[in-house]
């Protein structure tokens, strides 16, 4: 998905901005709005206009009081931007516009995103608008199509020492572990800052990496093993300097049952026998549980019938079998 910069498909105002810059666009638009108001509004309401162009013209739209003449998409887009703006007058005027229609909010947000994200970094205010668009698309509409672009934006901003915490929050709020693969791609980046950030977002130091594998391969192997047992923690950069976004649900891995949570509670219920297995399992030290869960999962993958007998055996025996299997290294 990218902004179509083919001049033939661009609106006139976009073409002026792209070819001559923001200032020239504003000057040209100002002259037009001062003399041919209707013509100026028509150009703004051109369906092809890019959101960033509309945003650049906001002070002029305000100065010539064109709000009421804008089409509903443009009104909604500008109103959505209100909170990020520093100009008090424009904020007041935008606040007085009628509340937007929730039914068309999604399509407006998508348009804002699709025709705006490439201008990320233009200024702090525009960045804040983008952060908000992503947050709403992901959190409210669970829109996964934006996530690859969101991942790229996070890493691009990080390379430039810009603010990323709200974008990171929005990214993880999709609450689907598949996004970890998007982050893992950056482990292969030639840029050290990308690799460092990817390691932080993936909590890579807490993952025991297999020897003789590169970081990316090792992470993917770890992810493949644990993906169905990953539990979203809700941690973020506002809470801590080292958020752990996903943790392995050891109970689920030990029982080889997918981890599904809602509102901090596991929503898959366990049978009485499973609860009984877990009781003994949870009396073990954390490190022991990590290893035993891993063994359990391996046995389950290799032979579910063998596993169903193994899981019924006392934990002490499971530990013993595990120890044999690991050549005596375990526990």
């Amino acid at each position: 998905m990218s902004t179509n910069n083919n001049n033939n498909s661009l609106s006139l105002l976009d073409r002026i901005r792209i070819n001559h810059g923001n200032q020239k666009l504003r000057e040209a638009f100002g002259k037009l709005a001062g003399t041919y108001r209707e013509r100026a509004v028509k150009l703004l309401n051109d369906n092809r206009i890019l959101f960033y162009t509309l945003y650049v013209l906001l002070p002029d739209i305000d100065a010539y009081n064109l709000y009421s003449l804008l089409n509903s998409r443009n009104k909604m887009a500008l109103k959505m931007s209100t909170k990020a703006l520093k100009d008090e007058n424009i904020r007041t005027n935008l606040n007085s516009l009628p509340k937007y229609d929730n039914r068309s909010l999604y399509s407006t947000l998508k348009w804002m995103f699709q025709t705006g994200y490439e201008k990320d970094g233009s200024d702090d205010e525009f960045d804040e608008v983008l952060d908000k668009i992503f947050a709403i698309l992901v959190r409210k509409y669970e829109d996964k199509t934006t996530l690859p672009i969101l991942a790229n934006m996070i890493f691009k901003r990080n390379r430039q020492d810009r603010y990323i915490h709200d974008l990171v929050w929005a990214f993880f709020e999709i609450k689907d572990p598949f996004i970890l693969e998007l982050v893992a791609d950056f482990l292969r980046s030639p840029d050290d800052k990308d690799v460092e950030l990817a390691c932080r977002l993936l909590n890579i130091e807490s993952i025991a990496m297999a020897k003789n594998m590169d970081r990316y391969e090792a992470y993917l192997a770890w992810f493949k093993e644990n993906r169905f047992f990953l539990h979203f923690t809700g941690e973020n950069y506002q809470l801590t300097s080292t958020p752990t976004f996903y943790r392995v649900d050891l109970d689920a891995k030990y029982l080889s049952k997918r981890s599904v949570y809602r509102n901090r509670k596991r929503i898959i219920s366990y049978s009485e026998s499973e609860k009984s297995h877990l009781k003994d399992f949870n009396e073990l030290e954390y490190e022991e549980r990590v290893v035993l869960a891993e063994i359990s999962h391996k046995i389950h993958n290799q032979n579910p019938r063998v596993w169903s007998d193994w899981i019924k055996s006392p934990v002490k025996e499971q530990k013993f079998i595990a120890k044999l299997g690991l050549g005596g290294d375990f526990l």
Binding site: V138, K140, A170, L239
Partner: peptide
Amino acid sequence: DPETIEFQGEN
């Protein structure tokens, strides 16, 4: 509310 991300929590 994702429109007020800053209130995702309070330290």
